[in-house]
Lab assay of single mutants.
Amino acid sequence: MDVFMKGLSKAKEGVVAAAEKTKQGVAEAAGKTKEGVLYVGSKTKEGVVHGVATVAEKTKEQVTNVGGAVVTGVTAVAQKTVEGAGSIAAATGFVKKDQLGKNEEGAPQEGILEDMPVDPDNEAYEMPSEEGYQDYEPEA
Rank of each mutant, 00 (worst) to 15 (best):
A124F: 13
M127W: 05
A53R: 07
K45W: 15
T75S: 08
N122Q: 08
E137S: 09
M127T: 04
V82M: 11
K80Y: 05
E130L: 10
E20N: 11
A140Q: 06
Q79P: 01
P117H: 04
A85M: 13
A91M: 14
N122V: 08
G93H: 06
Q109E: 13
G68L: 13
T75A: 15
N65P: 02
Q134H: 04
E131H: 07
I112A: 04
M1P: 00
E130T: 06
D121F: 12
P108A: 06
G106V: 05
L38D: 01
V63C: 05
P138L: 06
V95P: 08
T92G: 09
E110P: 11
K34N: 01
M127H: 07
N65C: 09
V52R: 01
A85I: 13
V37W: 15
V77Y: 06
D121P: 09
E139A: 10
G106P: 13
P108H: 10
L113V: 15
T81Y: 14
K12L: 12
K23L: 14
T72V: 07
G93E: 04
K21H: 03
G106C: 09
T81V: 15
V52K: 01
L38Q: 07
T81Q: 03
P117Q: 13
Q99M: 11
D135W: 07
S42P: 01
L113P: 11
G47T: 15
T92R: 06
V82Y: 09
E126R: 10
K60S: 04
K10S: 04
P108W: 10
Q79V: 07
E13I: 04
P128Q: 07
E110T: 12
P138R: 05
T64K: 05
L113I: 12
G31Q: 13
K6L: 04
V15N: 00
V74S: 01
V66L: 10
Q99H: 14
Q134Y: 07
A53E: 07
L38M: 13
T33K: 00
V49F: 09
P138I: 04
M116I: 09
D135G: 06
K60I: 13
N122W: 06
E105I: 01
A85K: 03
E131S: 12
E35M: 13
Q109L: 05
T64M: 06
A27Q: 14
K21C: 03
A85D: 02
D2V: 00
K102P: 15
A85H: 03
E57A: 08
A90H: 10
V118W: 05
A107T: 08
A27P: 00
A11S: 02
G101Y: 13
A27W: 10
A27V: 06
G36I: 15
A27R: 08
M5G: 01
V16E: 05
V70Y: 05
G47L: 13
S9E: 14
V15Q: 00
A90W: 14
P120N: 07
S129M: 09
V15H: 01
P138G: 13
A30I: 15
K32P: 01
Y125E: 05
A78M: 14
T44D: 00
V55M: 10
Q62N: 09
S129Q: 07
G7E: 03
V15C: 06
G36C: 10
K102G: 03
A29M: 14
A17H: 07
A27K: 10
T64W: 07
V55R: 01
L8C: 01
P117S: 05
A76N: 11
A17E: 06
Y136F: 06
T59C: 10
S87M: 14
K60N: 02
K10D: 01
P128V: 03
V77L: 13
A107N: 12
V40R: 01
S9R: 13
F94H: 05
N103Y: 05
V26D: 00
V37P: 00
L100D: 09
E123R: 04
A27M: 15
T81R: 02
T92N: 06
E104W: 05
G41E: 01
S42Q: 12
E61P: 02
A78Q: 03
E126P: 11
V52Q: 01
M5F: 03
E110H: 03
A89M: 09
G47Y: 09
P117T: 08
M116V: 01
A17P: 00
V16W: 13
E126G: 11
K32M: 09
G86R: 08
E104S: 09
S9M: 15
L100T: 08
K97S: 09
V82K: 07
K58F: 11
T81D: 01
T64N: 12
T81H: 03
K6S: 02
G84E: 07
E139S: 11
E130I: 07
T75D: 03
K12Y: 14
L38C: 09
Y125P: 08
A17K: 11
S42N: 14
D135H: 08
V70W: 15
G93P: 05
F4S: 00
Q62D: 01
L113F: 09
K34Y: 05
A17C: 07
N103I: 04
G7T: 13
G132Q: 12
A53P: 01
E35W: 10
E57L: 09
K21L: 13
I88A: 04
V37K: 01
Y136C: 07
A107H: 06
E57Q: 06
D98M: 05
V26G: 00
G132M: 13
P128H: 03
K23Q: 05
L113E: 15
V3A: 02
E61M: 06
K97N: 12
A91R: 06
K6T: 03
K58V: 10
V37G: 01
E126A: 14
E28D: 05
V118K: 10
Y136N: 04
L100P: 12
K23C: 14
D135T: 08
E105D: 11
D98K: 06
T54M: 15
A56H: 06
Y125I: 14
T75H: 14
K10Y: 05
P138V: 08
E114S: 11
F94W: 15
M1K: 00
Y136H: 10
E105K: 02
T59A: 05
K23N: 01
E83L: 04
E110L: 12
D115S: 05
L8F: 01
K96F: 14
K6E: 02
Y39A: 02
S9Q: 12
G106S: 13
I88L: 10
D121R: 04
P117D: 08
E105H: 01
D2G: 00
G73K: 11
G7A: 04
V71F: 07
Y133M: 10
V66P: 01
A124W: 10
T59E: 00
E83P: 04
A56I: 14
E137T: 05
V63F: 09
K34H: 03
Q109T: 11
M5E: 00
E139C: 02
T33E: 00
V77K: 02
K12G: 02
H50E: 06
K96D: 07
G31S: 14
V52C: 10
T33W: 15
E35N: 14
K58Y: 08
A89F: 13
T81A: 12
S129F: 13
E28H: 06
K45H: 02
D98Q: 06
A89Q: 04
F94R: 01
G51H: 11
V15D: 00
G51C: 15
I112E: 05
A11W: 15
K102L: 10
E104A: 13
V49I: 11
G93Q: 04
K80A: 12
G68W: 14
E137Y: 07
S129P: 11
E83G: 06
T33N: 00
V3E: 00
A90V: 07
A85F: 10
Q134F: 09
E46M: 13
I112H: 08
I88W: 14
H50G: 06
V77P: 01
Y125A: 03
G51W: 15
V26S: 00
G51P: 01
I88Q: 03
K58D: 01
V48L: 13
G73F: 08
G31I: 04
K34W: 15
V26K: 00
V16R: 11
A56G: 05
V3S: 03
G51L: 09
A30T: 06
A124E: 10
V49S: 09
G51E: 01
G67Y: 05
I88M: 08
K21W: 09
G67M: 12
D115T: 11
N122H: 05
